[in-house]
Nucleic acid binder design. Structure first.
Lengths: 234, 234
DNA sequence: CCTATCCAATGTGTCGACAAAAAGGATGCG
DNA sequence: CGCATCCTTTTTGTCGACACATTGGATAGG
């Protein structure tokens, strides 16, 4: 699906091909436009993007490094599955990253960081206001990624981004139908977070981040168990 | 340096080339056999490993994903530098990972995990006994990686491995000269760690891991500041 | 003598093609 | 009629070659 055409032929710059393919595929995977398990065919992509298989392969190698696709040797590459067995590990890790990045932001933020964070929060509030679930998920991710940036710890920021992306896949899996979730509560929690970061109050930032993480984890768990019940009911 | 010859020509299996190059280069980078900043030439590697540039490039892309090499567009690829400015972030992250992986191991370990951990600890003790600094560093890494495995959280295990590898590079930078460091203290701390994990005592595991991390961080800091003094003295 | 421009040389990014490996279907046997 | 085997087809892994970008040196100008 989504056989969006690329620019016609040979007008792209020298190193841009890989980046383009990587970005597009990454987005399609995260947005579930490419559902987990779908095969990723190199020839098909080569034709779609009007380029040789070489840059395609490089993009796939990088996506595999991010864990977004899984390469079966001598066999096809597929979009990585969402592993429900390791959900507890996921919840554990993302909760910890919420905490340390927010705490780090409270400690290391510059004024410019704060401004950027506020911009993302505005975008998030806007998405909530207009009931756009997909936009909520995306802007929420950007908001927390900006906080992680302000925390000045690339190790945390990298892991957190990865976790947030996986969370995006998870949420999309459930939010596509009933799009009025993600309560106003999240907006106010975000505001409290910003306050704590602005005041450089490490403990408050940590505390509200933990609460926020719990909130999100519980929501995902609720969605999943509800879904399970439905499936059993069939 | 180290122009180790590979097996002659075309007797390697189909998907093994990339893995081989990746593993060899990774080891040479971590062991500082390839010092930070050294250029990584694709043609040169292609000749050295007796294969085309394609699998070489794929290995380099993966190494770049691990942060071990840095690719300058249209220019050479170089072994990533050790960034001393982000050392505080490194210390922060590795301390946290020491704690959560050890705590996780105390919670989720199987008996088999415990056995594996003890084996690695034996190897570490052996290295300490024989005053082999390089072996200490390597076996210490394996010991903690095994604990991380037992913690059953792939996110933590991945980040921790990466941090331990960077730590290996850091330590090698200083240990090459005076090789009698890494006191017996570390061995006993490891033993305490194993005890806590065996008893499934989460808090004790956390506590001893934090102490252990502090120990290591302080040691690295000492080495660096000593080294700085020497350099200024020249 | 110093500086700016041009040119050659080196090395990366991309391409099309070939070969090995696996998947799926056809065929023969029990 | 079911099952194993062979073959065909599809797709990946690897190769050698070419085109562009950058670098460093040579040359001309100030």
């Amino acid at each position: 699906m989504s056989q969006n055409a690329q620019q016609h032929s040979q007008d792209r710059k020298r190193g841009s091909g890989v980046r383009l393919v990587y970005d597009v595929l990454r987005d399609e995977i995260i947005s579930l436009s490419l559902p987990p398990g779908s095969p990723v065919d190199e020839n098909q992509l080569a034709e779609r993007f009007q380029m040789s298989r070489t840059p395609i392969r490089e993009a796939l190698v990088r996506l595999a490094g991010d864990g977004l696709v899984t390469t079966l040797p001598n066999r096809s590459t597929v979009v990585s599955n969402i592993d429900f067995l390791s959900l507890p590990a996921f919840f554990d890790a993302i909760t910890l990253m919420y905490r340390v990045t927010t705490r780090g932001a409270a400690r290391h933020r510059s004024d410019q960081d704060l401004e950027r964070i506020r911009e993302h929060q505005a975008a998030f509030a806007e998405a909530v206001k207009s009931q756009d679930a997909m936009a909520m998920i995306a802007t929420n991710r950007d908001f927390h990624a900006a906080i992680a940036e302000a925390g000045r710890n690339p190790y945390y920021a990298t892991l957190f981004s990865r976790l947030l992306d996986e969370g995006r896949r998870l949420l999309r899996l459930y939010y596509s139908s009933y799009a009025d979730q993600l309560p106003q509560e999240f907006v106010t929690e975000h505001e409290q977070m910003i306050d704590a970061i602005a005041r450089r109050d490490l403990d408050a930032a940590d505390r509200i981040a933990a609460i926020h993480a719990d909130q999100i984890v519980r929501q995902i768990q609720t969605l999943i168990s509800e879904d399970r019940r439905d499936q059993i009911g069939l």
